[in-house]
Simulated assay, not measured.
Amino acid sequence: MRALIRFASIADRLSAASARLATAAVLLAVLISAGNATSRYALGLTSNAWLEVQWYLFAAIALLGAAETLKRGAHVRVDLLYVLAGERGRLAIDLFGLVVFLLPGMILLGWLSWPFFWESWIRNEFSNNPGGLYRWPVKALLPLGFALVALQGLAELAKRIAALAGAYRLDTTYNRLLQ
């Protein structure tokens, strides 16, 4: 059980690090967007590269922040079942969701996105827009993001196995969203 908990701790730290990159991308995207709008309307200057950087940063925000979202339990759940279940039932629901849905989905998406990135890398794909950017860096975010979520999914699986065995304390309280 110690090895599982240690693995989960390492994966948690990696997710937190990628989330810090996503957070920095939010700030950078806001600054670039404001600067681009200011230069376009105040000075009449614009650049496709700056627009594409914004798109790349939006992709980084979603793909690098997703693993931390999973770690924090802020992902989609079946509320009806989860709210009615006790602690062990919630752990079992999480195990089922991780094994049947999340992990196969992330592995499949990572597997399918790798050739998409690799082809772009090999061809040194460049944007068709004048002044555009290389495409492969943003395409690399796809398999990376899916791999990070899969790794965090394995960590969450390890935590729940350890919690069911009584070797790890996991907070399973659930607060329904108020709408």
Rank of each mutant, 00 (worst) to 15 (best):
M1S: 15
L4D: 11
R6I: 02
F7W: 05
S9R: 15
I10S: 10
A11T: 02
D12W: 03
R13H: 03
L14H: 00
A17F: 12
S18P: 06
S18V: 06
A22H: 02
A25N: 08
A25S: 13
V26W: 04
V26Q: 03
V26H: 02
L27R: 02
L28I: 09
V30C: 08
L31S: 04
I32E: 04
G35R: 07
G35C: 05
G35L: 06
G35D: 09
N36V: 13
T38F: 15
T38S: 13
R40T: 10
G44K: 10
L45M: 13
L45K: 11
T46H: 04
A49F: 09
E52F: 11
V53F: 12
W55M: 03
W55V: 05
W55C: 00
Y56P: 00
F58Q: 08
A59C: 14
I61K: 07
I61N: 06
A67V: 02
E68Y: 11
K71E: 09
G73L: 13
A74F: 11
A74L: 15
V76R: 13
L80W: 01
L80V: 12
L80Q: 06
V83E: 15
L84Q: 14
G86V: 11
I93C: 05
V99A: 14
V99Y: 03
L103I: 15
I107T: 13
L109Q: 06
W111Q: 00
L112F: 07
S113V: 08
P115I: 09
W118L: 12
W118Q: 10
E119K: 14
S120M: 06
S120D: 05
W121T: 06
W121M: 11
N124C: 08
E125M: 10
S127A: 08
S127R: 05
G131F: 12
Y134T: 15
R135P: 02
L142C: 07
P143G: 01
A147G: 07
L148R: 03
L148M: 05
A150P: 00
A150H: 01
A150L: 01
Q152L: 00
Q152C: 00
L154D: 03
A155S: 08
A155P: 00
A155Q: 04
A158Y: 07
K159A: 01
R160P: 00
A163G: 02
A163K: 03
A163P: 03
A167V: 00
Y168F: 13
R169P: 01
D171W: 12
D171P: 04
Y174R: 08
Y174N: 09
